[in-house]
Amino acid sequence: MERYKRQELFIGKNKQKRLNKSIVAVIGLGALGSLVSELLARAGINLTLIDRDVVEITNLQRQVLFTEKDLGELKAKCIKKHLAEINSNIKINSSAIDLNFNNIKLIRNADLILDCTDNLETRFLLNEFALKNKIPMVYGAAIRDKGTVMNIIPGKVCFNCIFNKSSSNETCDTSGVLNTITSLTASIQANEAIKILTNQDYETGLIRIDLSNNSITRLGLKKNPNCSVCNGIYEYLNGKKDKDFIKFCGSNNFQFRRKNNLEELKKRLSKAGKITGSREFIKFDNIIIFKDRVMIKADNENEARSLYSKYIGD
């Protein structure tokens, strides 16, 4: 196809065909996810896009594809719309959901998973799903002027082998992030995805990118013999580690999982104040209510919990 000529000249017809047949699931449409989606869409890869958020003003500094017109809209919906305008020859599915052990089967048909999420919980869940279903995955993350990428190939070193005892206190505070490191990290992530999909030699170590001194460091990896996930124990996938309440990184967002009747809540909350929104969600003050969850912006957990019980209930 004319569209892919420049890329095809370099990788060859067969690899291009392979890409055009592939489906990649992009989980998280923030700085990494939005750029990775654009790169893969332009390269001719079919996409399944998943994200639970709406576009906020603080996203525009680094999250490509979004425009001021998208503010307040669902990220999954916006990206699908923009990408369809860029490449109408690929298939794009998008879901504005909070990925969890109940709905993760949605990405079972993916040939590869791109982990662009903003929290460790979902990364552990994806790792277990990828290993169990033998789907390769590329982990990417960024903070400040540092980025990291690691390929997770079924049977090789997994995410849990390295990060099983980890917690990340840093991303959640006000450390900040540059759009230059997110775009560099996303590019490497997308490139590794293409290598894996087209059977080329891919990175087997952990890549660390540091813009303070323009270094890319590759660190060797070893499988952890005591890794529970490599030994077939899937605690996130079977719901054992599932939490109904989560604090998200970056923006002081708290999420409560709950089945909501939007019509009923609309009626009830309109008595308390102004309500905006669409068919998929309603917005009230610092609260966004979806059919399957409630997101609350608050300074701390206590404030979030009190807003929750004040306006939502139970």
């Binding site: 998280g28 662009c116 999420t117 993350a141 960024a142 990291t148 990340s168 840093e170 991303t171 660190l219």
Partner: peptide, 10 residues
């Protein structure tokens, strides 16, 4: 020895 932060931001 390298001490690297656990990064989970996306």
């Amino acid at each position: 020895v390298r001490i690297l932060s656990v990064i989970s931001g996306g």
